[in-house]
Design a binder for these strands. Structure first.
Lengths: 350, 350
DNA sequence: GCTCGATCTGGAATCGATCCCAGAGCGTCC
DNA sequence: GGACGCTCTGGGATCGATTCCAGATCGAGC
């Protein structure tokens, strides 16, 4: 879309129906072809005629029909975005980054969220195909969706997690490195019973965070205890319950590494409920920063994925793919910073 | 879109280009008209032929082009949504509610955020017009955008706030009643110096919250002190600064009513920085709930607007408007609950 | 004067789907 | 047997824009 200068959006003078290019052409006393050339700037038009047509369009409040234009040109200027849950700040930030960046490039964003349902995910993908979007950015739930979109020749960028590595472009954070870094930090403070609370280990996110956690132990020459790796469930309620079970007992871990912000919230709530002080009784680190982590006392040390930047990088990668369809698939890996706050300390010397 | 049964999304067998209805028609050995009738279910088709066409579509992985369909039918099955800032959980929840509800009705959602810029808002509106969306749901920044969309005969629903009352449909919360309720609560606990920290007083949100605050004083027969109504700025940094100024002094208020979640965060941070204990030294209530408010100790008492429900109500209103274009404009008012937490107490007896 | 190229314009085809309408086939009823 | 109604199919117009192409006009150069 050509960005009209401020204040130039014309006043449609009470049209019974929307103005079409035919109306503009008639008003300017030229043919539809000429009107089109004048407005798009492609092809010859005499300057005087061009101005006349533009004025007419202006007066009529003409806005070209994107459907018709896209149909004719067989390209669309919108992208599809599919995330898991907008109420989770991680996905909201991601969408925000994508939105800003794609607007800057003149593309509109179709946003859908599958509420964790593979069927909803495929339905959204089908809608994107129907709308002939220029590309899709998604946080995949299944490998099928990428394959489906690929079959329809729609460029796909997987963000945050990947299914089949190398099957399509992807933008992810270096989960392993970041997980290893925070785990090593806990070990260096003297913790030995460090639990990992995790939601899944099938996607690259969970898998790599687990790998990072383990390699920190190996690097420190410390033994691994698989009983300390615990599945935490998908929502705060479940996570809180699991965390209570984990923390309620004599043999409890002295530190917990929560693999995402929902699980961290569960641990925090469980600690509160059990009267455990952070960090005196329990150290906590989180993968995924969240707004509340800077509000509580002490603040929660977290791997701060910049979700907005992740979204922006995904958009950049998508346009590179569109301009360059043949180039080999690429996985962009962003590093994540660790925001040190007050939620870790040496373990209690019980 | 007809929801295909799971697993029925056909395999496009390596098409050089996407299958069109012409391809389906040829594969099923019928005309394009018949293929169309078979797939849409409108008009006569012999059952045997219908099945043959559907199988052909299946085999080819045919997905009808929404552009072409919309162009022909002059209606679209997508709605435009325009919010201020997705990173704010209020707007993200709103979008989430809209998304879920519109997906349920088979509509796609075009989402844009103006980053507080009126120009970006108008640009997004123009995109919505170009895409011929069925309707637009927005949290308006300017009166102009609603008027612009209205001129192009696009149904508009304003959510959260209204500009010209009655100019279009709207879904809002009862700001006045909720503000009055929480203010009255503070007065009943004995507070007299109750500050209102507010961002704007031009929109209905700010105006009504101010009105509610004032009428609580009037109802209690207490005098108003306009020096206690303070503008707090638009982001957390500014809000924190203003709150520090407000709370740093001998004559500081004993309670603060923050008119939104960003301002409440500013007050919370300022109180922390100044070493003020909540609620012993300072009571705090917020308009707008936010996730962190249940995470901190004590929890922050807040007017809990259900933003998801707000979004869902907006979608419902939009479809009512679409089905019933002539009916008088309607403003739906949702009441907001007050989530009582621990952030208020009787004022210090200094 | 004639050719050639550049500039400029309008007619008509095109994108992919829907839908009106004419007409074929067939059964029923008077 | 003929009129009528119902079922079913295909031809072709249509939505709104873009774009190819033919042709008109004009000025310059030989």
């Amino acid at each position: 879309m050509e960005a009209a200068a401020p204040g130039t959006r014309g006043a449609a003078t009470a049209p019974g129906r929307r103005a079409t290019i035919k109306d503009v052409a008639e008003a300017a006393d030229v043919s539809r072809s000429t009107a089109s050339r004048a407005l798009t700037g492609r092809g010859y038009v005499a300057p005087a005629v061009r101005d006349r047509v533009r004025r007419a369009a202006q007066t009529l409040g003409y806005v070209p029909d994107a459907m018709a234009r896209n149909l004719r040109q067989q390209v669309s200027r919108s992208i599809g975005v599919l995330v898991s849950d907008l109420r989770n700040s991680f996905y909201a930030d991601l969408a925000s980054g994508i939105s800003g960046q794609s607007r800057r490039r003149g593309y509109a964003m179709m946003l859908a969220d599958d509420a964790g349902s593979v069927e909803a995910e495929l339905e959204a993908a089908e809608t994107f195909v129907a709308l002939r979007v220029a590309g899709v950015i998604l946080t995949p739930l299944s490998a099928e969706v990428t394959e489906y979109l690929g079959r329809h020749r729609i460029p796909v960028i997987e963000v945050d997690r990947q299914f089949a590595e190398g099957a399509c472009d992807a933008v992810v954070v270096d989960n392993k490195a970041a997980a290893e870094r925070v785990t090593t930090g806990l070990l260096q403070q003297g913790h030995r019973r460090v639990a990992l609370l995790i939601d899944e280990m099938d996607w690259t996110t969970g898998r790599d965070r687990l790998v990072g956690y383990r390699s920190a132990f190996l690097a420190a020459g410390l033994p691994l205890d698989d009983a300390l790796v615990v599945r935490g469930g998908w929502d705060v309620g479940a996570a809180t319950g699991v965390a209570r079970g984990l923390l309620d007992g004599p043999d409890r871990p002295t530190a917990v590494f929560a693999a995402n912000n929902v699980l961290a919230e569960g641990v925090w709530r469980a600690a509160q409920a059990l009267g455990l002080r952070v960090p005196e009784d329990l150290s906590l680190v989180s993968f995924d920063d969240a707004p509340w982590m800077t509000m509580v006392t002490p603040g929660v040390t977290a791997v701060a994925q910049d979700a907005v930047a992740l979204g922006e990088a995904a958009v950049a990668q998508m346009f590179e793919r569109i301009e360059n369809p043949g180039s080999p698939k690429r996985t962009v890996m962003l590093s994540a910073a660790v925001a040190q706050r007050g939620s870790t300390a040496a373990p209690p010397t019980a």
